[in-house]
Design a protein around this nucleic acid. Structure first.
Lengths: 171, 171
DNA sequence: TTTATTCAACCTATCGATAGGTAGGCATAT
DNA sequence: ATATGCCTACCTATCGATAGGTTGAATAAA
């Protein structure tokens, strides 16, 4: 596989576990099977790597969501919720922009700004199906917060129940 | 002021900006005006410090909330929401357990377990007023997620609007 | 067709800075 | 005199980052 992609994959996994300061060039290099200097070849600084991670993550999530304006509100919510549930229950990883967002105060702007955009895009996507921005904001916040709470309690069906409750009440 | 308390204050502030791996003994020592060795005197390991931070944070938040079972649902939600809003708009800090929760995968269990308890306590507190656990879970998740989203977009009234929307719809 | 050149993609080795952590000294207060 | 609280001084490990060398494949020149 393309080494640059392998680096991004490994870095994303590490970052989604420990955040921006929770992984190192050496961690990533070791995962990929190369030296840290070779990671610097592809991403000169950590800021570069973080920015690339955030940009790719946005692209992947939006691609996984597809088009929203044809979907019924329930279907749109389910599709987004499934991404969060998969992240939690299958990959056992945080949302990249969720961790980064929590560390926003010490994040380089080049990384923070894409993270900010991520949430705007999620909300816009959901709003285009809901026809209601405020409802979309509440949904995204709930999913992001629910993911964190669920992960704090190591083994957890918290998020799954939360999603179920949301569906049964508000959509 | 008591140095131990000053250490906890400085460490909490740093941790709520950058997470568990986003601050160092030297950072904290420098903030307090002592040497890092003196921080180790009070908290031998970082795990000890992190655990103390989480425990104190829980205690402080619960104290600020007071008793819930006498409160109307709207008043209870407002009181909790105000804590999140103050954290964001006045102190410009994350919720400690929010950042820590996002990093749960690389957090020592001695730190993660209190963080987990924090969310259970918040939910129980709100549920004792709501008379409904599921509604309380949704509210806490929304506040935590909303805080993150609001902080990612540096200058932000996102959380304030989110809280307003919640109140006008669901309480 | 062979030779020379360039380039991407790694490597080894190292930098200064900083991480968490420790040992032992020196006051002050009990 | 004993314990407390802080200090200087230091340790090992690792951080992000850089310098300079090696490789092999593509490209251009002979």
């Amino acid at each position: 596989m393309d080494k640059r992609t392998a680096i991004l994959d490994a870095a994303e996994r590490r970052a989604r576990q420990g955040g921006y300061h929770g992984f190192s060039f050496r961690d990533v290099a070791s995962d990929v099977g190369i030296k840290s200097a070779s990671v610097h070849y592809h991403f000169p600084t950590k800021e570069d790597l973080g920015e690339a991670l955030a940009e790719r993550y946005i692209k992947n999530i939006l691609a996984a969501l597809g088009e929203a304006d044809q979907l019924e509100p329930v279907a749109a919510f389910d599709r987004m919720a499934d991404l969060f549930l998969k992240s939690h229950e299958i990959d056992d990883l945080m949302c990249l922009c969720g961790v980064f967002g929590a560390e926003a105060a010490i994040l380089p702007d080049a990384v923070r700004i894409p993270v900010d955009r991520f949430f705007r895009e999620l909300i816009a996507w959901l709003a285009s199906s809901f026809g209601d921005v405020k409802e979309a904001e509440l949904a995204v916040a709930t999913l992001e917060g629910g993911l964190i709470i669920s992960r704090a309690g190591k083994q957890g069906d918290f998020l799954r129940n939360l999603v179920k409750n949301w569906r049964s009440r508000y959509v």
